[in-house]
Computed example of a mutant assay.
Amino acid sequence: MSDTTAPKDGAPAEELQAPAPAGPAVPEIAGTPVRPELRVEVISHHSGQFGAADAGDTTGYGLTRSAVTLAPAATRPYGGWFDDAVDALVEDLRASGVDPAAAIEKVVVEHGELTLFIAREHLLDVVAPLRDDQDLRFELCLGVSGVHYPQLAGRELHACFQFMSLTHGARMIRLEVACPESDPHVPSIVSLYPGDDWHEREAWDLMGIVFDGHPHLTRSAMPDDWVGHPQRKDYPLGGIPVEYKGATTPPADTRRSYR
């Protein structure tokens, strides 16, 4: 009886071995793997069920542990038009001499929405083709909002820009830029999207994100002499004096100009 496991036609035995099972896909940008620390960013850890820390636990829930994370980096295919949009942006960045993997930190797909995390030094490099490329054409910026993650060391402040393409049927894309509390600077995009002027003012006023290059970054909601940024999570929630007491509204002809 012949040995059915023997190589046929003189083929080496290793050629007949089953291929090794593939491991989990690693998210990447233009062939470069996403940095491990950015694939899943852990914001905090929770223990217990109800958050009561002033008494002993009698429910057993005190043994539960959970991690609060940002949405993980996505792997291809992203789905729908997302792959084509990212490919077009990567092509534009390469054409302008920018390394796509240095500009785009990671791609996130969650709840049917596309978010690109962008390195702040390359924000304008990304925003320009996002507006001008005929395959992208995100002509409308819907504004910027700020998020504060006090426990996300070195990336505590996030500026989230939302864009819409009227040319391509109201497609939506989000750019998210992270910066540390110790250096809360992000480039302003007002030179490309003038309508973002007041949104950036508000994000600076309430969250303390400084938009470099903004034509006139001033308080928009709080008084000029207000100390701090009241939408940060470490801002005191109570027990402070009523800071508006005695405030006055100056005559219209003496107010500062916003132009």
Rank of each mutant, 00 (worst) to 15 (best):
G60T: 01
E113Q: 08
V98F: 01
A85R: 07
R65D: 09
G79T: 08
A67W: 14
G79Y: 11
L63H: 11
L114S: 04
R131D: 06
R65I: 12
D133R: 14
L130S: 02
D84A: 14
L70R: 02
R131L: 13
E105Y: 04
I104C: 08
A88L: 15
G79I: 12
I104F: 11
G80P: 01
R65M: 14
P77V: 14
R120F: 05
A67H: 00
T69N: 08
S96N: 06
E113T: 02
D125F: 11
L114W: 12
A67E: 08
P129M: 09
H122N: 03
S96Q: 13
D83G: 03
A73F: 02
P72F: 06
D133H: 15
D99F: 05
T59V: 11
D87H: 13
E91D: 10
V127A: 04
L116Q: 00
G79P: 03
A71Q: 09
L116V: 06
R65C: 09
L123E: 00
G62L: 08
R94D: 05
V86C: 07
E113I: 12
D57R: 08
E105A: 03
P77E: 12
P77L: 15
L93P: 02
L124Y: 08
V109H: 01
E121C: 12
A101I: 12
V127I: 14
A101N: 04
L116M: 08
A95V: 01
Y61D: 05
V126S: 03
A119N: 06
D92L: 03
T59E: 09
V126H: 01
P100F: 04
S96D: 03
F82R: 11
L123P: 04
R120V: 06
P100D: 10
H111A: 15
V86H: 01
P100Y: 14
R120W: 07
V86I: 05
P72R: 07
T75Q: 07
A102E: 10
G79V: 10
G97P: 00
V126N: 07
V107E: 06
D125L: 11
V127S: 03
L70M: 12
V127W: 07
L93E: 02
D87R: 14
V98E: 05
W81P: 05
L116H: 02
R76I: 05
I118V: 05
A119I: 00
I118G: 00
E110Q: 13
I118A: 04
D54L: 14
V109D: 01
Y61R: 15
D57P: 00
